[in-house]
């Protein structure tokens, strides 16, 4: 009996010491981790909407804040939102910068684990620049009648990104102007 108590005691000591050390290290690293996450999003926002110097939250989409960015003269520089949809094998999240006239300014894929060499090519700058200057009427994959040229062998990933951005643009227009633009007469393409 005494022997077993000793066993328990030794294990208890080891575990307590280990937890203590971990708690200390956790208290050191946790703020850095939080700061990193905040910074990463902030940097993505700055990247897709470089003219903006300050951001105000205006709404929510995909559990992320939609921001309205102001330039250094205090005028509206555009919006940013996070587009998110399930692609071929993972959630694809895109930070989207939008101009005041609801065209895409720039996009940045911030999260994806699509197939390497195929879908994962969506992080390449050549692909991301395809979206610049497009509004929601042409924000469709070429196969669906839009202007976004699919990545070779990864139509599903491309379509996911285009669709998620289109949904976001529509939502943004709805909350900002509460009216549909005149040039939209294209039928919605079913996925």
């Amino acid at each position: 009996m005494k022997y077993f108590l000793r066993l328990g005691f030794v294990l208890l000591v080891i575990t307590t010491v280990a937890s203590g050390i971990l708690a200390y290290i956790n208290s050191l690293t946790e703020p850095i981790i939080k700061e990193n996450q905040r910074k990463a999003k902030e940097e993505a926002r700055m990247e897709v909407l470089p003219e903006a110097v300050s951001f105000d939250s205006i709404s929510y989409l995909n559990e992320e804040v939609i921001y309205a960015g102001k330039n250094n003269e205090g005028k509206l520089a555009g919006y940013t939102f996070v587009a998110s949809l399930y692609g071929y094998s993972s959630d694809v999240k895109t930070m989207v910068g939008v101009t005041p006239d609801f065209k895409v300014n720039k996009i940045k894929i911030i999260e994806q684990t699509e197939t390497p060499g195929l879908g994962a090519n969506c992080t390449k700058p050549e692909f991301q620049s395809l979206f610049e200057g497009k509004n929601e009427t042409v924000m469709l994959v070429d196969k669906d009648g839009g202007e976004i040229v699919s990545i070779t062998g990864a139509t599903i990933t491309t379509r996911t990104i285009a669709n998620s951005i289109r949904t976001g643009l529509k939502f943004l227009r709805k909350i900002e102007v509460q009216s549909e633009p005149e040039e939209i007469h294209r039928e919605e393409v079913t996925e």
Binding site: I21, L22, I25, N26, L28, T29, E30, I32, I33, N36
Partner: peptide, 10 residues
């Protein structure tokens, strides 16, 4: 766990 936390931070 230490490696995990340190890598996530840095």
């Amino acid at each position: 766990t230490i490696v995990d936390m340190v890598m996530e931070a840095y």
